[in-house]
Amino acid sequence: MKNQLDPTKVLHAFERVMERGTPTEYGKIYDGVEAFSDYDGYNLYLRGNGVELKVGFHNTYHLEYDQEHLRDSFLKKVAQLSK
């Protein structure tokens, strides 16, 4: 799965959620996707529908999910948010 995500699009999706979202306990949520970062801002997180995407330093990322169809629908949502 490495190199399948475009870091620029993920960052655009993160920014869209942060700009348009409503506050949550950790960050903001918009269109079913929650965005937040750790205390120093080095790691960004997008999560929703049982999937969590962690984007780290140097555009590394880690996806956690239980089912592939949930991952696929989440990544489609992230792609839509990046437009």
Rank of each mutant, 00 (worst) to 15 (best):
A79M: 05
A35F: 00
E15M: 09
T8E: 15
K28H: 11
Y30A: 04
V55G: 01
D66S: 10
D66H: 14
R71Q: 12
T60R: 15
T60K: 15
Y39S: 14
D6S: 15
E64W: 06
K76E: 15
E64T: 10
E64N: 12
Y39P: 09
I29R: 12
E34P: 10
K9G: 03
K77V: 00
Y65E: 00
D72Q: 15
A79K: 13
Y45V: 15
Y65A: 02
I29K: 10
F57P: 12
S73K: 10
V10H: 00
S73M: 11
A79S: 04
F36I: 02
K83F: 06
Y30D: 03
D31V: 00
Y45E: 12
V78K: 03
V55F: 00
H62D: 14
G50K: 09
L81S: 06
E52K: 12
H69R: 09
K76V: 07
Y39E: 11
G27V: 03
V17N: 05
G21K: 02
L53K: 07
L75K: 06
N43F: 08
L53N: 01
L75E: 04
L11W: 03
L63F: 13
R47D: 06
S37A: 14
T8H: 08
A13T: 03
V78C: 08
L5W: 06
Y26R: 15
D66G: 05
G56L: 06
G50Q: 08
G41L: 01
R16W: 01
Y45N: 13
L44Q: 13
R20V: 04
E25V: 03
M1H: 10
E15D: 11
D66T: 08
T24D: 11
L5D: 05
S73F: 06
D6R: 11
Y42G: 06
L46M: 05
K54V: 15
G48I: 03
Q4S: 11
Y26D: 12
K77C: 01
R20S: 12
K83C: 03
Y30L: 04
G48R: 03
D40N: 14
D38W: 04
L81T: 02
Y39K: 15
H58I: 01
N49P: 04
R47M: 13
N59I: 02
G41R: 01
L53A: 06
G32S: 09
F14Q: 02
D40W: 05
L53P: 07
I29Y: 01
V10G: 06
T22V: 13
H12L: 15
R47Q: 15
H12F: 05
E52P: 01
R16M: 09
M1W: 11
D31Q: 13
L70Y: 09
K83P: 01
D31F: 00
T8S: 13
